[in-house]
Amino acid sequence: MIRTFIIGIVLGIAAVIAGLHYFPAVDQAREISIVTVTPNGGNTEAFHVNIPMDRIMIGASGQSEALPPELEWPEDPLFGDARTELFKLRNARDAVVGVASRVAARDAQAGDIVEWVLHLPARGSVFITMNPAPVGGSRVGSMRAGTREFDDLVGRVSERWVADSSDGVNAGRIELEAIFVSTVFDEDENLVDVSSEEEAE
C-alpha cells in the first residue's frame, strides 16, 4: 500500500507539471484577420468604430454630458486643449477585435497632435501618428511603432468620419484603413543571386 501511495505522489507531481506545461493558462479569443493584398503595396486591413455604440470615453474639458456617466475629467488648465477618447475597435466583419485610444490636442509647445493606439489583444498594438490637417475628408498618418505581430511592419493609416444620418445626430463610424508593409524579408535559398553570378563572369 505504501508503494501505491508513493507511486501516487510521483504521478501527482507529474500530472501537475504536465498540466501546467501542456494546457495554456491564457487562451485569447481570435477573430480571423481580414487582410487584402495590395499589388506592390503591402497588406491592407480595415478597422472601424461605430459611434456612439463603441465609444467608451470622451475625456475633454467642459463637456456638457460626461461619457461615461459620472466621469470626473481633470479640470487642470494643462489639459484644456486635449481630447482623449477610448473606443472598441471592429474589423471589416463588424466584430469587436480590440480597443483603441485617440488623443487629439492643440499644444502650444508640441503643436497639433492626432494619434491613435490600436490594441488587439491576440495580435499586438499599433501606434499611429496622424497628420493633423485633413485632406479631402480624411486624415493620413503613419505607423510609428508596432508590437508583437506588428513589430516588423511599417505603413500608412487613414482616418475618415462617415456620418450616418439615419441614426440621428453624431452617429456614424470612424473608418481606419491601414496599409502595412513588412521590413523583414526571408531569403529563399533556392533563388539564384543573378548579380553575384554576373560579377563572377
Binding site: 501511495f5 507511486i7 501516487g8 505522489i9 510521483v10 504521478l11 501527482g12 500530472a15 501537475v16
Partner: peptide, 10 residues
C-alpha cells in the same frame, strides 16, 4: 492510497 498519493504529489 493512490488517490491520497496523487493529492499529496499535486
Amino acid at each position: 492510497a493512490l488517490i491520497l498519493g496523487l493529492a499529496c504529489g499535486g
